[in-house]
């Protein structure tokens, strides 16, 4: 029997390992239950096989107001497939158990609130997740959730945006744990042709207030984007582009296509 490792420690180790290997850490977001319930497990494993360091499990919500069309459609499909937060916990527990992977939940306030923040913390810790990302819960509204997560050792990963002013960064970043998630652009999630031109400047502003690893997400869609972030960020998050790869591949090729896509991003992040 091995000594239990917390999800938060798995997350910390994942970023440290990528750093040691002189590459950007790659976090892959997939909506649980998309395109169907049965394939989630194999897609998560395919992302890991492609070299993903961190998995973000998208908890479907009916009204994902921070998400672009790709995640909206995936979320709608998952809900039609009857996916619940309980299913997300089961998928997380399985991939943590089998692959010792660092897993985060990304989902909106209301489904977490209805499940119960304390129950989420307890069940999340039991499943081995590292923490949660809640795009419609700014730090001003997070005290109830933080209060529930802390005793269970779960993290709440804050998002920071290019519009976040320096004084706000200075006030909020000392409370950050795990890593810092920088939103690359002003906008919703979704694949983009090019990186926002001010990403480096933004990440630089954030870096002045934290020693934690910095991951950049929203709009990261191609190896060139990842390559362009070498020397700027410590990691990237890819979501919509990964889902697009899954959507456009024939059913029997989905896992392979995702693995190859993730591998191309990992390769592009090597210095």
């Amino acid at each position: 029997m091995s000594v239990a490792v917390s999800g938060a420690l798995r997350l910390e180790r994942a970023f440290a390992r990528a750093r040691t290997e002189r590459r950007l850490a790659v976090a892959v977001y997939l909506t649980v239950g998309y395109p169907d319930r049965a394939s989630t497990g194999s897609l998560l494993r395919a992302a890991l096989d492609g070299g993903a360091d961190v998995l973000e499990l998208g908890v479907p919500f009916s009204d994902p107001l921070a998400d672009g069309t790709t995640v909206q459609r995936a979320s709608e499909a998952a809900l039609r497939n009857g996916v619940t937060l309980g299913d997300c916990l089961s998928e997380a527990a399985a991939v943590v158990r089998d692959r010792d992977a660092p897993v985060l939940f990304m989902g909106y306030t209301n489904p977490f609130m209805q499940y119960g923040f304390e129950r989420l913390a307890t069940d999340g810790a039991r499943a081995g997740i590292a923490g949660v990302i809640v795009p419609d819960m700014p730090s001003e509204e997070s005290s109830e959730l933080d209060f529930a997560l802390a005793p269970a050792g779960l993290l709440r990963i804050d998002l920071y945006a290019p519009t976040t002013p320096d004084d706000r960064l200075a006030r909020l970043l000392p409370n950050a744990r795990g890593f810092v998630y920088c939103v690359s652009l002003t906008g919703v999630t979704g694949a983009r042709r090019a990186l926002a031109s001010d990403v480096a400047e933004f990440v630089g502003r954030v870096r002045r207030h934290t020693a934690l690893p910095i991951a950049v997400g929203f709009g990261i869609s191609a190896p060139e984007h990842v390559a362009a972030l070498r020397g700027t960020a410590d990691g990237i998050v890819v979501g919509s582009a990964a889902i697009d790869v899954v959507t456009s591949a024939p059913a029997e090729r989905r896992a392979t296509a995702l693995r190859e896509f993730v591998a191309s991003l990992v390769a592009a992040g090597r210095s």
Partner: peptide, 23 residues
């Protein structure tokens, strides 16, 4: 309850960070 704009337990500002400076 934390946050501004509360009516008892109701109200608040549950928004993406991008909008917080604008609000």
């Amino acid at each position: 309850m934390s946050g501004r704009g509360r009516y008892g337990q109701f109200g608040g500002q549950f928004l993406p960070e991008t909008l917080m400076p604008a609000i």
